[in-house]
Design a protein around this nucleic acid. Sequence first.
DNA 1: CGCTCGGACTGATCTGCCTCAGCCCGCGTG
DNA 2: CACGCGGGCTGAGGCAGATCAGTCCGAGCG
Lengths: 243, 243
Amino acid sequence: MNASHSPFARKLGAFVALSKKEHLTLDRLHGRRKVFPAGKDMVHQGQTNQAAYILASGWVCSYKILADGTRQIVDFQIPGDFLGLRSVLFRTSDHNIEPVTKVEASEVLVRDLLETFSETPRLATAVLWAASRDEAMVVEHLVSIGRRDAKERTAHFLLELSARLKLVGLGSLSGYDCPLSQYLLADTLGLSAVHVNRVLRELREDGLVTFQHGHVEIHDLDGLVEFAHFDKTYLDHDGPLLR
Amino acid sequence: MNASHSPFARKLGAFVALSKKEHLTLDRLHGRRKVFPAGKDMVHQGQTNQAAYILASGWVCSYKILADGTRQIVDFQIPGDFLGLRSVLFRTSDHNIEPVTKVEASEVLVRDLLETFSETPRLATAVLWAASRDEAMVVEHLVSIGRRDAKERTAHFLLELSARLKLVGLGSLSGYDCPLSQYLLADTLGLSAVHVNRVLRELREDGLVTFQHGHVEIHDLDGLVEFAHFDKTYLDHDGPLLR
DNA sequence: CGCTCGGACTGATCTGCCTCAGCCCGCGTG
DNA sequence: CACGCGGGCTGAGGCAGATCAGTCCGAGCG
């Protein structure tokens, strides 16, 4: 693997060994580079004919708004993640996408995507793999919200972020930068912001993790993994699908 | 559409107009018919080289077990639904699959599936559509558990089942047969069985729905839809993807 | 026939998390 | 400079839903 590759290539490369030619094809896939300011929705529920994007830098979140005005964040996307595959497939988006920070993303034209898939099927497999991994994450969130208590749920989420960021080279086993506010965490974890605050304090007092000033510091990885019952197989499955 | 087609063909046909030839191809896809008894897991977490199935009759549920022994049901599959697409893709299953009732299912060989896809791309689109719809349902469950209260959540779930069953001809606007126990409902909705019982009683006393003796009777569809804030667009999206 | 067992159902009590209401700090801005 | 505002943080009190501890009923079975 070459450090000069994009986070996207880096992520796919971790699971499907890519040839030089495939790397080039992947680079060509990146269309116009666009910049989105933080906080202003990129995509709305019900919006049609949406483009797809590959995130180059920054974080975004996908969420749904409910009738009473509350919202549930379904997932975050970090650099290297694919954005809006389902919206393209359905022609209509069923959720909102909001940049958490300033975001840079390459537009991917549906035409180019389909062309790439038919020319280099291995890349199709890789992207499909990435999409399924996203689904596995949503399932894991569902399990978390349904059956884990607030503290365990929070710990689990912080560990998941850690694993994902490490994969694209944006963090280490001991910590990572995280631009999420406690309000965003609350909307993700199905909690109130007040309670998120208390839970974070408890985790800090237990000497497990500290999340302060935009940085997550993991003090006791093993302890945290055990406490959260974190089993990362849902993130990496069987390792490389194709050699 | 022809009533003699399988629920699977009927479901796909509702969204992608299928030719006679495509119907025939679809029929050939169905491999060996297998029968599974209720309650005995068909697939376990971590099991590898799993087959995929198309459900012909009966209900199954996909769930995950947690360290403390509780479980979270992620989704149910009803006749016409595809089973284990992700397990095949990843070679390893990340969840359990348990028949709720006695189940009949046709095995689908990965080879046949891929062959069908390359020969009749419209079917590939249709199956991909179905898979994405499943993901949209999981997302909706996540939103439900995260942000709706027990009563609203339960009502929403019963309405979702109604819409899904109607699509495959197993129910009407006024009700449907439902083999789920209150324990299964509890594991799905992230509630305790005791509370599910109370919530069902309230919904009954409100004159909205009755769920008793394996049958769901919707007394006041409009009232229920409004109460649950049920917006079924996540189930049918833009209508036919392909004409 | 009585026994067990699974599932629906109920009351009493407990608790995790929410809501309300507020303080504090740092930062951008008129 | 004051001030407004977003975000972190905290205490008090309330409530939705869990837990505990049952009863009742029907189906399967020795």
